Each structure stands twice: as C-alpha cells, then as structure tokens.
Amino acid sequence: MAAFGHTFPFYAGPKPTFPMDTTLAIIITIFLIALVTFIVILPGIRGKMRLFWLLRVVTSLFIGAVILAVNFSSQWSVGQVSTNTSYKAFSSEWISADVGLQVGLGGVNITLTGTPVQQLNETINYNEEFTWRLGENYAEEYAKALEKGLPDPVLYLAEKFTPGSPCGLHRQYRLAGHYTSATMWVAFLCWLLANVMLSMPVLVYGGHMLLATGIFQLLALIFFSTATSLTPPCPLHLGTAVLHTHHGSAFWITLTTGLLCVLLGLSVAVTHRMQPHRLKAFFNLSSDANPMLEWSPEEGGLLSPRYRSMAESPEPQDIPLSEASSEACRKEGHRREPVCAL
C-alpha cells in the first residue's frame, strides 16, 4: 500500500459506538422495568405502608443493580490525558487528541478522540476493547489489532497490558479482576438471600445477609486495591504527556453501596434487638397473624410454636344432642358410655 499510493497502514473505519456499554444498558433496563412494575402496583397498598414498601423496593433494586453492573463495568481504574501524539505507524504526522484508558474486571477499554475530531482528512474517534475473561485470549486480540492497523496510541496502551510486556500490568489487573469479580458474585447471592429472608418472618437473618452483602463488597475493593498495587506503576508516555490512572466510578460506587449495606444490616439487627415490633411493622409483618405461634426475638424471629397449657386452653363446650340421638345413647349406654359422655 505504501509503495503504490503512499498510504500508511489504516483502520477500515471507526465502528459505530453506543453511548454506553451494552451490557450495562441491559442490566439497567431490567432493573428499571422491575422498578416501574412495582410502582404500578403501588396504589394497591394502603396507608403509610405504601411509603415503607416503596423505600424498601427502591433501596433493594439499587443495591442489586450496582452489584451486578460493576461486574461488567470498565470504570474500576481510569485515566485520561490530552496530548499531541503520532497517529499512524511509519508516519511523521501528529495529531491533537484525548486518550482515555478504562480498566475493568474483565479487560481494558481504550478511547482516542481527536480535538477536533476531523484531522488529516479522517474522523479520529476510536473505542477499542481488549478482554482477558475466561475463554478470551488477550494476546490474540492484540495481534488482530495490529493486523487492522489501529492508531499508534491505541496499540501503545494495548501493548502495555499484553502478557509479555515488562510492565506486568496483565498479570496484575487480571489477578485483581478475577478475585474481585468472584467476591462481587458472592455479594450478589447474599443480596438475593437477604431479599428472600426480609420477606419472611426471619428479619434478623435478612439483616445478617445484608451485612454480609456489604462486607463482601468491601472485601472486593480490598482485593482490587491490593492486587493492583503489587507492582510499581508503569509510566504510560503518550507523545508529550504521561497518562496516570486512578480509581474510577465503579470503585467508588461499590464502596458507597457496601457501606450502605453494612449500615442497613446493622440497623436491622439492632432494631430487632431493641424494638422488634416496630421492625415487623416496617416490613408489614405481624405476630398476630397466627395466635397459636409466637416469634421469639432471642431465636432470631423464627417461628417458635408454643403449645398452650391446660389452664390457657378454652373450656370444652357442651353440644346438645337431639332427642333421637339421646334415646340411642340410652339404649346402648352399656357399650358406648364414653362417647355419650362427651
């Protein structure tokens, strides 16, 4: 190509991009549909329980959506810089562009946007993803990017995360993503169990599961921070500037949600110990639903059957018999005496 038209290696054309990650869009859409469904049936709830019920639903859906969405987010470690850098290989042409790097639990996302977008008679707007999830080969994806002829800044950042790079970023972030993702999935299961238990007369155990949900989220943050700090930072030089990374929005929103779950779990446990009746009223659960069963706060709110003593049992009632039945009982009194006595 360079011999015939003096054209350097090029990318066939920018792929059409969606304003946000499609996986995150699907997750957010599902939880929004669930929220709208609950709001539609809200008028059927009477009194102040309507507000309590709406508060529980919104809080629970928010926690579940965050736990699930951050697993697929690329905003765990981010960085962006405006620089003047080379655009294509074997070319002396430079461009002015914004270069962005987003590192998630399953890979990296690299963006290149020209300032302005139209430079060198081209539209400079790239958004490329390189993954290391199970079943994905990062080295093969990088080789395909070389074959496509992606711009130099994209290839430069992608090369830093290859398994053979001396920076060691691949092993560092892949290890962090593996353990962080596994811990977040455990937190998601704890959230599911918490919802089930809070809808039953076992509120204290639902609070415990909320507490476990928050603890596992905080553990995931510890794993990510520890694993990403195992090796010294690798300088990322892009033209005349250096790209620095820091914790992204997914990290901070996970921290906020984890602290919220811990606070809610402790609140449920303390309220159950101090004022269990108000806690049951908040969750629309009443201990008067079955007078033969009582809930014991010491046993965590489980149904504890307590049998009545003879003194507490109601007096037996005498049921009058008809004349025909009384006559039959008198005739067979010597054989069915105990039955007639009843």
Rank of each mutant, 00 (worst) to 15 (best):
G300Y: 02
A220W: 04
T111L: 06
V58F: 14
F224T: 05
N137K: 08
L264I: 08
L51C: 02
E141K: 14
L175W: 07
M209D: 09
F282S: 03
L32V: 00
L193W: 13
P338T: 03
S304V: 15
A328E: 07
Q80N: 06
H334Y: 09
P43E: 04
L279A: 06
T240Q: 09
T131S: 09
F52H: 12
A2W: 14
C261G: 00
P9T: 11
R330F: 04
V117S: 05
K88G: 04
K160T: 09
L155Y: 01
V103H: 02
L259M: 11
E128K: 08
H334Q: 10
F18S: 13
F62E: 05
E337C: 02
R50T: 04
A324T: 08
V339H: 11
S267M: 06
S313E: 10
L219H: 02
I45Q: 06
S73Y: 04
A187I: 04
S165Y: 03
S165M: 01
D152N: 10
L243N: 07
E323L: 11
L68H: 07
V268E: 03
N121F: 12
C329P: 00
I253T: 11
R171F: 06
L68Q: 13
G239Y: 03
I215A: 15
E141N: 13
R46Y: 09
N84T: 15
V40P: 00
L35I: 00
S73L: 08
V108P: 02
S225E: 07
P314H: 03
N284W: 15
I30S: 01
I67Q: 05
V81K: 07
P43F: 07
F161Q: 00
S267D: 01
L264G: 00
G100N: 10
K88Y: 01
T162E: 05
T256C: 11
R278V: 07
S82A: 12
P291G: 13
R335D: 09
E315N: 13
P19K: 07
H277T: 14
P166E: 05
E147R: 10
G177W: 03
G107M: 05
V57L: 06
N125G: 00
A194G: 10
G258L: 03
I222N: 08
A97V: 12
A289T: 15
L303F: 01
R46D: 10
L101R: 00
K48L: 09
N284L: 15
L54W: 12
A158N: 02
W191S: 02
K280Q: 14
L68K: 08
T7P: 00
L61N: 03
V262L: 11
S96F: 13
P14V: 09
A3W: 11
G300A: 05
V57Q: 09
H246Y: 10
Q317C: 05
K15R: 09
T226I: 14
V262A: 08
M184H: 01
T115K: 11
I319L: 12
M20A: 11
K280E: 14
T254N: 13
A158T: 06
H247L: 10
R278A: 10
A194E: 02
G149T: 06
A194Q: 06
E93S: 12
T228A: 04
K280R: 15
T111I: 01
N125V: 00
